[in-house]
Design a protein around this nucleic acid. Sequence first.
DNA 1: GCCAACGTTGGC
DNA 2: GCCAACGTTGGC
Length: 156
Amino acid sequence: MLIKEFVACWLVKSGVEEYSVEQFKRDGKTLWVGVRNHLAKKHLKEMKIGDEVLFYHSQGSPSAVVALARVSKEADSDPTQFEKGDYFEKRATDKAPVWFAPELQFVKLLPRPVELPEIKKHEKLKSMVLLKASRLSVQPVSAEEFKIITRLANHD
DNA sequence: GCCAACGTTGGC
DNA sequence: GCCAACGTTGGC
């Protein structure tokens, strides 16, 4: 007998200047590379195909959740760790990569962005990781938080 | 293994 | 642009 699999929800941040939602929409799919924080990495590695993802623009005015995405491939070696540049990781080898990247698929722009001040005000969103660990760029979101945010996005 | 110095993220 | 939070580095 088939058991319906548990679908987890996540939030990933991207600086508007760094990788914009417009670019993500054009790309359709993208490897979520460049994460260089171990807790964020742990979350990336926990992502399963089909998991729901909130795409959040940080450093915006204001910052906001702007789109929905879905995990389309589970995390594998992040190729940017081998490239000279900001993301280079000297400890990494092909057999023992240090950093990992899942593939995310663009789903849709939210009907309207759900802005950080609104999230802060919302009684049921007060315990979001987004508000507790402001610098964490990949974080879990509860099913209830996910539902509230998508519902807010559908109302003016 | 502690911790000070330093660098980065991200809200404002 | 400032600065608080916090992760990382490196001396000891």
